[in-house]
């Protein structure tokens, strides 16, 4: 048998298959995404708040506050990871039968893995994106209004503006970007284990599986 006549599953096919799968199982995708959005928005909220506070009161202020907030962020991240792992696990196991069928049609282990990892990547990107933007916006608006005086509102916006103009514009985006990156990494890690187990199943084992 020549290699030209072997099975194919180009990345573009895998990508459109994953995208369609997310679209058509939107309810399931929303559940998975909700945990990502909540976790990442909380994380970004804390990071951004810390940043604004240190801009308002100077870098040295509130080292204790920052330490406390980092602590909170770690816990937020842990809770968020557990949620994502749980929903990824569910969404893979409920599709064992589908995986078995795909393997009967010619899918190889790597193809199955590809499909699930691309799905996780997309969910991580979208969920993380929404979460990061939400967290950042809430933190900025919240700080602007709870600092109450117009001077402080002015300072918050002015400091953000200065940061954007003078220093590195990326600083403004740093916290949301950290949020998105973390969300993608967590989503991929969470999907890796169940997807790997599912991909390694023999077609008969996968087909026999009843949820």
């Amino acid at each position: 048998m020549s290699r030209e006549e072997g099975v194919k599953f180009p990345l573009s096919e895998a990508f459109s298959f994953s995208l369609e799968s997310i679209k058509r199982r939107f309810g399931r995708a929303l559940v998975t995404m909700a945990s990502i959005v909540l976790g990442i928005s909380f994380l970004t909220f804390l990071l951004t708040t810390g940043r604004i506070v240190s801009v308002l009161y100077g870098e040295g202020s509130g080292v204790a506050v920052q330490f406390y907030q980092l602590w909170m962020a770690v816990i937020a991240l842990l809770i968020c990871s557990v949620g994502i792992v749980n929903s990824m696990l569910m969404s893979v196991t409920e599709r064992y039968k589908e995986i078995g069928t795909m393997k009967c049609l010619g899918a190889m282990n790597t193809h199955v893995l590809e499909i699930f990892l691309i799905e996780a990547l997309l969910l991580g990107l979208i969920g993380g994106g929404i979460g990061a933007v939400a967290g950042w916006t809430i933190a900025t608006v919240w700080q602007a209004f709870t600092q109450a005086s117009p001077v402080n509102i002015f300072m918050v916006s002015a400091s953000l503006w200065t940061e954007f103009n003078t220093s590195n514009p990326l600083l403004l985006l740093a916290n949301p970007l950290i949020g998105i990156a973390l969300s993608v990494v967590i989503a991929l890690l969470a999907a890796l284990a169940p997807a790997y187990i599912a991909a390694k199943l023999s077609p008969t084992e996968a087909l026999r599986y009843e949820v």
């Binding site: 048998m1 006549e5 072997g6 099975v7 393997k103 009967c104 049609l105 010619g106 899918a107 190889m108 282990n109 077609p203």
Partner: peptide
Amino acid sequence: AYELAWLRAK
């Protein structure tokens, strides 16, 4: 594995 997948597919 590659040839087996081809067998199943084709």
